[in-house]
Simulated scan of single mutants.
Amino acid sequence: MRFLHPLADVSECKIGKDSRVWQYVVILEGAEIGSNCNICAHSLIESDVIIGSNVTIKSGVFIWNGTRIEDNVFLGPNATLTNDPYPRSKDYPEHYLGITIRKNASVGANATILPGVTIGEGAMVGAGAVVTKDVPANAVVIGNPAKVIRYRK
């Protein structure tokens, strides 16, 4: 049975079985969230977002239009996902470059992922990393800009 905290603002969207949405979360109309997800306080999910099952989204994560998150992904506190490579006030692009995070990947606290980037299956982004290009499957990246330091076994 899914749980929606009474202080969450959840529009008409799809939320799978056994998912939990905590206080001060905003989910816009049209978003799709799989089963057994945990969406922690003070997070935002826009309408053109698809999130798989068994995903953990820690507090302070904003997920913008065009983003696709596969199963078993972890997003650490205040991870920053972006979708507009040239942001300007009151100037809206026709198409947003979302981020793709493949299954079993993890993004550490305060990491920043630039628009259009794909985080590969099983990859790990270290806390505070600034990811400017695609991360290969099973790679561990850290730093600014993020660089591969090893591959997970």
Score class of each variant (00 low, 15 high):
1 M>D: 14
1 M>H: 12
3 F>D: 04
8 A>Y: 02
9 D>N: 13
9 D>K: 13
10 V>S: 03
16 G>A: 07
17 K>A: 06
17 K>G: 01
17 K>Q: 10
21 V>W: 01
24 Y>P: 09
27 I>A: 02
28 L>H: 15
29 E>H: 11
29 E>S: 15
30 G>W: 08
30 G>Y: 10
31 A>F: 07
31 A>R: 00
32 E>N: 07
32 E>M: 13
33 I>M: 07
35 S>T: 06
39 I>G: 00
39 I>N: 09
40 C>S: 15
40 C>F: 15
42 H>P: 01
43 S>N: 13
44 L>D: 02
46 E>S: 06
48 D>E: 14
50 I>D: 08
51 I>D: 03
51 I>H: 03
51 I>R: 03
52 G>W: 07
52 G>L: 08
53 S>P: 08
53 S>H: 09
53 S>N: 14
54 N>Y: 09
57 I>D: 11
57 I>W: 12
57 I>M: 14
58 K>I: 00
60 G>H: 05
60 G>I: 01
61 V>F: 03
65 N>W: 08
67 T>C: 10
67 T>F: 05
70 E>W: 08
71 D>G: 01
74 F>H: 11
74 F>M: 12
78 N>A: 12
82 T>I: 03
83 N>R: 09
84 D>I: 04
85 P>D: 12
85 P>R: 05
87 P>R: 06
88 R>T: 06
91 D>T: 11
95 H>P: 00
95 H>K: 15
95 H>C: 05
96 Y>S: 05
97 L>K: 15
97 L>R: 13
99 I>Q: 00
100 T>C: 10
100 T>D: 05
101 I>D: 05
101 I>V: 14
107 V>I: 15
107 V>A: 02
109 A>H: 06
109 A>G: 09
111 A>R: 00
111 A>E: 02
112 T>V: 04
114 L>F: 15
115 P>I: 07
115 P>K: 11
115 P>D: 04
116 G>A: 03
118 T>M: 12
120 G>C: 10
127 A>H: 06
127 A>S: 13
129 A>L: 04
130 V>K: 09
131 V>S: 05
132 T>L: 08
134 D>R: 09
134 D>I: 01
135 V>L: 10
136 P>H: 12
137 A>E: 15
145 P>H: 13
152 R>I: 13
